[in-house]
Each structure stands twice: as structure tokens, then as C-alpha cells.
Nucleic acid binder design. Structure first.
Lengths: 191, 191, 191, 191
DNA sequence: GATGAATGAGTATTCATTCAT
DNA sequence: TATGAATGAATACTCATTCAT
């Protein structure tokens, strides 16, 4: 799977063939099928590993001080997301690729997005009830759209190679995110 | 090209073959190469047509009253973008697909994005100089990130099929956009 | 198809590969698919040609004198069948082979047999009504079983290579056939 | 071997793989080769078992009264043959299949047929010497052809699934068989 | 004897592209 | 220009058999 992942990262899904994977793993061509039933299946496993890695890395940010502000927590989440994307960018690009023509594998990306957006929606609902954010903001649309903003920005910067500077990106993304929700400039509330 | 576009829309780039295009265009298989040098080239032409169509449709919104607010203008731009995406979604999906594995064709999408973001950046610079928006917002990052937000939201709703309601989407996207920039709730300034 | 038939005859269906067919036809491997959609399809065409040839050859026996006896007509049919089988034995063997594992192609053999047995049944019914044959003989079973006798004997002699002598075989087959039906030793009736 | 036989019966020779046999026998894949040297060999053993079973079942008909007629004995043999075929039809079908492409295994079927035909020939020679059957009938051809009739009829009914009714089939087969040999309608001679 | 991982030869099919007519 | 037959490279998957443990 290690060999496969490396090849997927460098050549993409379409240009990676089973023969190359076996070659790189230093086993016979047929041996591949002792471990995986198809090219699609091994990609699926790599992709699941990817989403697991992603969540682990994204969560692995320095803990916030107790009672940290909402803004600080959003910033931490954004930094975590960008950190994870930064480390996994090549595979994220391939997952994006595969999702455009393989419905079964698209589902992996879709469910990852789904759970992220759902968590965002739930959080925003709480914040809204507590009057912490702009009442005009619809949690569902906001979670989806702001999720798209962070997600796509990471892709544009880390996959497409648009110029950016990490800390500045985190800071601006957080500023836009908080402003969008109507979070007061400097708050000290915890959710 | 009409035949090709229809096929690309329904089957995607990978599953559309030159033979099918010729068949649909009612010419011989070989005749295809009288007009196009390769499958990549015809896709390139279709993609250029797509971006032209997109701009035309996006611009084809009812004109604003003279002296309309910035917010109104942003809303108009968002509505135009979503309208255009709505009408061209199938081809947009294919362009997205191809851009993931063909660098040459990725360039088409990249330059369309580039000019859109550049215009956004320029506008935000002007608004910033005039003190219309949050001084902490960096025009380059904001134009890029908010462009990503609108762009990706359209993809998620119109290509991936996530539930949404058109007018609500435009309104929320605009609200988040303006909030993000720190635009005062209701202004009557024109840029 | 000529190349394919020759290969099927010498190597059987399983050991004949598309590459060999193309090679023998002196065309590129891929050219095969310009003419046939699959190995199964080309076999199907060869098999249909075979059944056509078979019927043509089987019918191509010297005509009988007007008013020839039933026995003479049965002998002529048996001789025709054996003649056809003799000339087409290698392909008949392959058809038999394929029919054991490919239901679609088995249908070709089945329908050829079906029509032969049906004709036999109809003829025997007429003979029975006219009191020409043993009333205890059931036309359906007799046509099926005696058809099997002739059919399988041809296979055993011409495919499996069991020793036989052509004229003697025809004569004995006819004797057994007529005896089985209870046809009087020497009749001069026409049907 | 039990596992192998069950698989051969349901899936045929070609679609049965060594891995499946081992799986069904609840041993490791490689263990198969501790007991059998190849797929061909295990099939050979199953096929030998089959011919033994066949002879046992075919012989296991109610004994005839002492001094039973020739016709009664022929009917008993036909009934026994059809009974055996009925019980072993799936494996008989596979043996027929394999015999079409594997000369070594074809030999099993050939020798079973050979001994049956030889016995028939010997019997008919005796009957002929005693003037019990039509003198024009050649024992060799008759034993071969009538053996083919019974054998192929069984295949057509029990493997190919052509409609038939057991007792009627035995009766008609016997009638045709005896008629073919020119056996007088009702005799009381024993051979 | 038993295991099961490893082997690697074998093959039908697709399709963008070319070119003689 | 139009044709469409010909091309041939490219590739995932199967499976009987082997052998180190």
C-alpha cells in the first residue's frame, strides 16, 4: 500500500498501473491480487488511510488555553486543516481527481465533507442560539459555504500552487470566517 | 464541436471517445481529424467556449439601479455566477475533471480563475482605500478565498447535488461575503 | 473468418486466441475488432456458416428415382448426413466442445438439432398414419432417439476416430433405422 | 475429492479452480498438491469414480426372472443405463465437456464406451449365431450405433434437458433397439 | 504433512491516431 | 475534404503451481 500510495501521489490514479505498483513493491505482478482485489480497492484503502491521517494531523494542533475565545478556536481549526492539507496535498489532489470519475470513490470524499459540514452546522446552531453570531446567518449554508472556502483555498494553494504564505493564510481565512459569521472583533466567550 | 460538447457533458472526458463524437456529428471517424488534431484539442475548444458562455451568462443579470449599494453589486455578481454555473454545470463538472489530470487543460480553468480573482483583488483594493471594508482584510487573500467560497459552493450544490435553494443560496453567499469583508450592514455607497 | 475457422478446427475454441487469428489473417491485433466484437461472436458466425454448409452438403446427394422407397430415402438422408459430417468433422467437434460450456453458443447446436428432430417427428407421424411403420413406435421418441443414433455415430466415427467404413456405415445405419421403425424389409411406397 | 466432485458438478471443469476445491475441503490452498499433482489428476480420479458408480448403479436393477426374454434383458440394460445417467447426469455432463478438449481425460470416456460396445458386439454375435436377430445386422456397427443411440439420448434428455418421461423413454428405446436388431416381437429365449 | 504467500505466464479488449484511396 | 479500414500500444485480472516455513 505504501508503494501504491507513492505512485498515486506522483502519477495520479489514471497513470498508475497495477504492474508498476507490484514492481515498486518488489513482488510479482500477480502478487498484487493476493492483497487487493482490484486497483479500485487499493485506492479505496489508501484513500481511507488518507482521511484518517488527515483527521489525526488536523487535530494535532497545540491545545488552546482553557477559556480560549471562539475566534481562537476557529483559527486553531483552520490552522489544523491547512497543516493537514499541506502534508497530504499530493494524495488530496488524487482523491479529488478520482472523485470526478468514480462514483464509488467519490463517496469517500463526500462523506468526509458531509461530516465536517454537519459538525460545522451543529456548532453554528449553538453559537446562534447563544447570540454569538449574526442571526441572519443560516447555519447550514454558512457551514457549507465557509467549509467550501477553507477547503477550496487549501486546494488552490497547496495543489494548484497559487502563491500563499502559511501563517498569513490561516490568519486571513480566520478573519474572513469570523467576520462572515458576524463574530465580534475580539471576544472572550467560549462556546 | 456541438456533438463533442453534448457527449462530454453526459459521459465525461474519459468515457467520450473520438469515434462517438464522429458518429454523433454524422461524419466518418477519420473526418474528425480534418477539423481537430486530437481529442485534447477539441476539448480545449469546447472549454474555451464554455468560459466565454460562462462570462456572458454571468454578466447577463438585470442591471442595477444607478448608485446601487456595494452589497447589491456583490449580490448581483454572486447571482450571476450561480446562474451561469446552474446552466453550465455538466460541462463545468467535466472541466473540473479534466483539470485534475491534464495540465494543459488545467491551464484554461486556472486562467479563468486567475482573472476573476485579479478583478476581485483590484476591487477590494479600491474598497479598502476608500475605507469601505475592514482594513485587516488582505485584498489578495480575500479575493482568492471568497472566490473559492462561491466557486466551490456552486460545485458542491450544482455538480455534487448537495441540497440548496437558489435565492437563499445567493442571499447567504452574499451575506457571508459582505460580512467577511466587514461591509457595514446597509450602505448606499457606490464604488 | 477463414483464418479463425482454420484455427478453431486445429486448436479448438479454448486454445485459439484472438492474437493468433489476427496473426494468421495478417492484420494487426486490434484490426480483429474492426470486424468482430469478440471471440465469441466470430465463433458464432463460423458456427452459423457451419450449419449452413452442413445443410447444403447433406442435401447435395444424387436425387432419388421418382417413387423411390422410403428405405431409399432414409438411406439417402443418412448418407447425406454422414457426408456432411465427414467434410466438416473438425468444426463439428469444436461446436460440440463449445456447446458444453457456452450456453449462448450451445443454442446454435440445440436449434439445429431441434429442427432436424422436428422434421423427423413430422415425417414419422405421416408414416405412422399411413400404417407404414410399427404402430407401437412413438414418433417423438423415435425421431429423437434415431436422430441421436445417427448424430452420435457420426461423432464417434469422424471425430473420435473409431474405425468404420463409409458405405457399410450408411447401410447399417439405414438398416437399423428402418428396422427400428418396423419398416417392411423391402417396400416400394413413397411418403 | 468429494469437494472437487461437488464443484465440478455445479460449475463444470473450466470454472472450478483449485483454490475453490481447497476452500471447500477446508484445507489450505497448497495442501491440495499434497494429495493431487494437478487439477487434471483430481478430475481423472473423480471421473474414474464416476464410471465405477455408473456401472454399479446401472447393474443395480431388479433381477430378471430366470429364463427372461432377450427383450426383457435389453430393457433391463436400458433402464439401468438411464437410471445411472439420471443419478449422475451433472458429472456425466462435465466428463463430456472435458473429453472435448483434454485427450488424456477423453481416454476415460473412450474406454468406458469401448468396453460397453465390445460387450454389445459380443452379445450380438452370439444372438446372431443363434439366429435370434436379423442376419443382415452387423454386430460391430449395431453395437456401436445402438450404444450411441442410448448414450446420446440420455445426454439429450438428462443433460440438455429435452422433455421426456422416464418409463416411456425406456420402453421406446427398447422397442427401437429390439426392432433394429430384428428381434421377433415377443420371444421367450434367453441368450 | 500442512500452510498460504508468492509466482508469472497468459489474454481479451479499447481507442486515439494514421493514411491510402 | 472525406472516408473508414488498419494500427498497435497499453493494461487489469486469473489461476495452476511452487516452496520456504
Amino acid at each position: 500500500m505504501c508503494a501504491a500510495r507513492a505512485l498515486f501521489e506522483t502519477k495520479g490514479y489514471l497513470d498508475t498501473n497495477v504492474g508498476d505498483i507490484a514492481l515498486r513493491a518488489r513482488v510479482a505482478h500477480g502478487t498484487f491480487y493476493t492483497y487487493f482485489s482490484s486497483k479500485e480497492e487499493i485506492f479505496s484503502e489508501v484513500a481511507h488511510e488518507l482521511t484518517t491521517d488527515f483527521q489525526r494531523i488536523a487535530a494535532d494542533e497545540p491545545p488552546l488555553a482553557p477559556g480560549a475565545s471562539l475566534r481562537a478556536r476557529i483559527e486553531r481549526a483552520n490552522r489544523g486543516y491547512l497543516h493537514a492539507y499541506e502534508q497530504l496535498a499530493p494524495m488530496m489532489a488524487v482523491l479529488e481527481q478520482v472523485a470526478t470519475f468514480n462514483p464509488r470513490l467519490a463517496e469517500i470524499r463526500r462523506s468526509a465533507r458531509r461530516s465536517r459540514v454537519d459538525r460545522g452546522t451543529a456548532a453554528m446552531r449553538r453559537w446562534r442560539e447563544r447570540g454569538l453570531i449574526d442571526a441572519a446567518v443560516d447555519p447550514e449554508y454558512a457551514a457549507s459555504a465557509l467549509g467550501s472556502m477553507v477547503d477550496r483555498s487549501a486546494y488552490v494553494w497547496l495543489v494548484l500552487g497559487e502563491q500563499y504564505e502559511f501563517d498569513r493564510a490561516v490568519q486571513q481565512l480566520t478573519l474572513l470566517y469570523c467576520n462572515a459569521l458576524g463574530l465580534p472583533p475580539d471576544d472572550d466567550n467560549s462556546a
